[in-house]
Design a protein around this nucleic acid. Structure first.
Length: 498
RNA sequence: GGUCGAGUGGCCGAGCGGCUAGGCAGAGGUCUGCAAAACCUCGUACAGCGGUUCAAAUCCGCUCUCGACCUCCA
């Protein structure tokens, strides 16, 4: 039993986390629809739940993390003409759904890897689970909560609501929903406007279609998550995550379907991350303010002043609590970049450092303070994954570590035990739990190393002779080539490669 | 229109009844041949108006502003 508390969207309060099977956690997160490129908005849930996954593992749980790929449904590639999929065209000229899905799935994986997100345990695709979805729909029909009309199958929400709390997750009131005047596709077939599709009959021009007991068609959007989560995590599992915008109707529908199919609610804890906004507006296709991951990493977008390293983006996202909105701006990203560089350097310094003095602390007050910051990292994570607070704690530690190095704080001021705690706190939190990595991978070229040490030696000599013209030339020219020299306090010279 | 949520110092962002948040920027300083980095010091904020309380950024009410969802959406 851990002290982990998470905010459960379903009950709208923080609850102590307790897994169904001791030592194990089933985690399901709604994955991307791979009909287009992943964008900055996608980064948030997958980084957030990557940290959830990592932290649960840190606490000792064996996590089965399932994240789906939505590759079925209404498919149209962005910017591609509708006639592309017209059947009269030669096959190689037509859009092939599998080709498109493959392309964007690969691109999604590419982004996830750059963000240093751990792979899910299982990444099921909707198209690979048509049979499971059909089974589940038949099950719901058999129980009397779904009906077929013209080759489509709809879930009877009104009937469901008579017995179950429909709308509880998203705070909807059925009566309000029934009054909605909005005209939706297939509305006339439904018994009530609130009913949602479990299976849709495929129109003649629809390219993705499968045989079913109700004719050729394709599954409704919500059923895939219910079918796949129960298949791999069981009828009832621990945590279901996703973006806040999925609360309604997606997650609400999932609850309804699964409750009927399995005779009980499917999930114990619902977690929802908040949105990323640009100039206060949610990023989304319909707002025309989407920054794709490829654009973000290359800086190739009108509103981007520069490119941003995936680790900078990750850090920026984790500096805010996952349930707060996060507003994008160049200023904010640039601040995160500087902040992260400083923090990471302190991390590298403390890992390499040797503590001086005896085992006991010579400054009890500092020792206690330092321990407090370390311990608060645990408390902050346990308090609904407060990564922002964890980072703030690490920043409290950074000047102390730098002080050890600069020599104005004696590393013996804190005890040997506390010193070790600082090292493990940086390592565990920054790398293992927050999943951060160095911005630049150390180039391990012996030849380069030798060339640089030669230049560094020449520069040292020049400095000794007060030949600053030469020493500055070496530093400046190397800087132009992307190699930054740094004169350390002890007279040594180190370098970093941009 | 309905439902829910948010408004914190120049900017970003924690906190959510009493205890320093933190980062970035800015100012001054230490160190340094210079530079960079690092370190030290500084600002003293909680949309507005009332109320509850010994005590409110934190609770309650009203007002204003903004956002999300109600449609595919992370």
């Amino acid at each position: 039993m851990s002290d982990l508390h998470i905010y459960n969207s379903y009950t709208r309060q923080k609850e102590q986390f307790q897994s169904i099977t001791p030592g194990h956690v089933g985690l399901y997160v709604c994955g991307p629809t791979v009909s287009g490129e992943s964008h900055l908005g996608h980064a948030r849930p997958y980084i957030t739940f990557d940290v959830v996954n990592r932290y649960l593992q840190h606490l000792g749980y064996k996590v089965r993390y399932v994240r789906n790929i939505t590759d079925a449904g209404h498919f149209e590639e962005e910017g591609r003409e509708a006639e592309d999929k017209v059947a009269t065209k030669a096959q190689l000229e037509r859009m092939e759904p599998m080709e498109l899905v493959h392309k964007y799935t690969n691109l999604f994986h590419w982004g996830m890897r750059l963000f240093n997100n751990l792979d899910p345990s299982i990444e099921p695709t909707a198209t690979g689970h048509i049979i499971e979805q059909i089974d589940m729909i038949e099950n719901i029909i058999a129980k009397g909560y779904a009906y077929e009309v013209n080759g489509s199958v709809y879930f009877d929400v009104k009937k469901y609501a008579e017995k179950y709390p429909y709308g509880k997750l998203s705070g909807r009131i059925l009566e309000d929903l029934l009054e909605t005047t909005r005209e939706l596709d297939g509305q006339e077939e439904k018994r009530n406007k609130v009913d949602f599709a479990l299976w849709k009959k495929a129109p003649a021009e629809h390219i993705m279609r499968w045989n079913s007991p109700w004719g050729e068609g394709f599954p409704g959007w919500h059923i895939e998550c219910s079918a796949m989560s129960s298949k791999y995590l069981g009828d009832k599992f621990d945590i279901h995550g996703g973006g806040m915008d999925l609360q309604f109707p997606h997650h609400e529908s999932e609850i309804a379907q699964s409750t009927i199919a399995h005779d009980h609610a499917p999930v114990n804890y619902w977690m929802h991350n908040n949105m990323i906004t640009i100039n206060g507006k949610k990023m989304g296709k319909s707002y025309n303010n989407v920054i794709k991951l490829t654009e973000l990493f290359s800086g190739n977008h009108p509103i981007l002043e520069q490119s941003y390293h995936p680790m900078v983006v990750r850090f920026y996202i984790l500096q805010t609590h996952y349930r707060s909105t996060l507003d994008f701006s160049n200023e904010a990203l640039q601040a995160s970049e500087k902040a992260f560089r400083r923090l990471w350097e302190a991390h590298e310094i403390v890992q390499k450092m040797q503590r001086a003095g005896g085992a006991e602390a010579t400054d009890k007050e500092l020792d206690a303070k330092v321990q407090g910051f370390c311990r608060d990292c645990d408390e902050s994570m346990n308090d609904d994954l407060n990564t922002a607070k964890v980072i703030a704690n690490l920043f409290e530690l950074a000047p102390i570590v730098n002080g050890f190095k600069a020599g104005h704080i004696d590393s013996g001021a804190i005890s040997a035990e506390t010193f070790e705690l600082v090292q493990t706190t940086f390592k565990t939190y920054l790398e293992d739990i927050l999943g951060m990595q160095a911005l630049q991978v150390k180039e391990s070229s012996n030849k380069l190393d030798q060339v640089l040490s030669l230049l560094i030696e020449i520069r040292k000599d020049a400095k000794m002779r007060k030949d600053f013209a030469t020493s500055d030339q070496i530093r400046n020219k190397l800087a132009e080539a992307g190699v930054m020299l740094k004169d350390e306090k002890d007279g040594s010279i180190t370098y970093t490669i941009e």
